[in-house]
Write a protein that binds this DNA or RNA. Structure first.
Lengths: 162, 162
DNA sequence: CAGTGATATTTGCAAACGCATTTAATTCTG
DNA sequence: CAGAATTAAATGCGTTTGCAAATATCACTG
């Protein structure tokens, strides 16, 4: 696998990570912030018998009605086989139910149950609080700009996604 | 542990996630973007025999000289026991070496080797490219503002950290 | 419309993970 | 300064993860 046609970039010297500095490198900062955010929710989730994949599925399902599992996998950022097993558990606990798609019997749609909504609503205040903590002291217009940039970034990376 | 003095917020009705909308909720967007970013690096890393924790450790070590394992755990956003085992592998492969701290013989400092630097430098162009892709079409001043906000956010959540 | 290739989901399995505990060393306290 | 409490790192162990393969269904092609 020899790289036989380098796109347009001439072999310029890339700035090194050390020159940029860790704390100026957006992916590093984002990983670090999200690591903390996710960790801060884990305790709360554990108390509700939820894991990160289960919680993410519930969160998406609280907003999107009856997606296919493959779609849910993208939206919830959970690998599909992991999601499949998370859904097994959620179904056993009565928080979601699976329903074969009417038009394509290979496909499965996922529906949140009332119990599922309730579970997510129990968790939501904690997510909301973690969110507020993260943005503490950051003015509304800066928050808006930040989210706007995130949306552009998502558009950039989802080119070949859903 | 009863919350005995709610800060300033009266028990207002929290806006629901559905009202905010997934794609306006920063943590969701950040998780989704970083999920893609990390996944896009995984193939490259696999080819080099690296996993996410190993890569993160190397990345930090390429910038920070000889941190304690506990510090490296925070900087690299890898759980300490996971990091301990990742370092075992990196040491076996000759990419880092551990050195007992001179002043405290409980503690261990981690040093990157030349081979480690080389390995990271092989990966760096791909990280850099994933970074560029993420920010494609976003002007420099918007990027700067974005990173500025991230830095504030990190400061908010690291209150009780390093 | 049989056969080949794609697509949706699940499952087998080995590796990775993270919590809790252990081991080792340091610091604090009376 | 002995003993208790704390801190750093490693390890035991059950669970989770994610890749690859299997299963089931659908779409396309000659």
């Amino acid at each position: 696998m020899t790289d036989q046609s380098p796109p347009e970039q001439p072999p310029v010297n890339l700035p090194r990570l050390g020159e940029i500095g860790l704390t100026n490198f957006a992916p590093y900062l984002m990983n670090r912030i999200m690591g903390r955010y996710n960790a801060s929710l884990r305790d709360e989730m554990a108390g509700l018998g939820l894991t990160t994949p289960k919680m993410r599925a519930l969160a998406v399902l609280s907003v999107i009605e009856g997606p296919l599992i493959r779609e849910l996998s993208v939206f919830s950022v959970v690998e599909q086989s992991t999601l499949s097993r998370a859904l097994d558990q959620l179904a056993t606990e009565g928080l979601i139910r699976r329903e074969t798609d009417a038009a394509d019997s290979r496909a499965t749609r996922v529906l949140i149950t009332e119990a599922g909504r309730t579970a997510f609503e129990t968790l939501w205040p904690h997510m909301s609080e973690a969110h507020s903590r993260m943005f503490r002291g950051i003015p509304a217009d800066e928050r808006r700009a930040f989210v706007g940039t995130l949306q552009k970034m998502l558009a950039n990376i989802r080119k070949h996604e859903i």
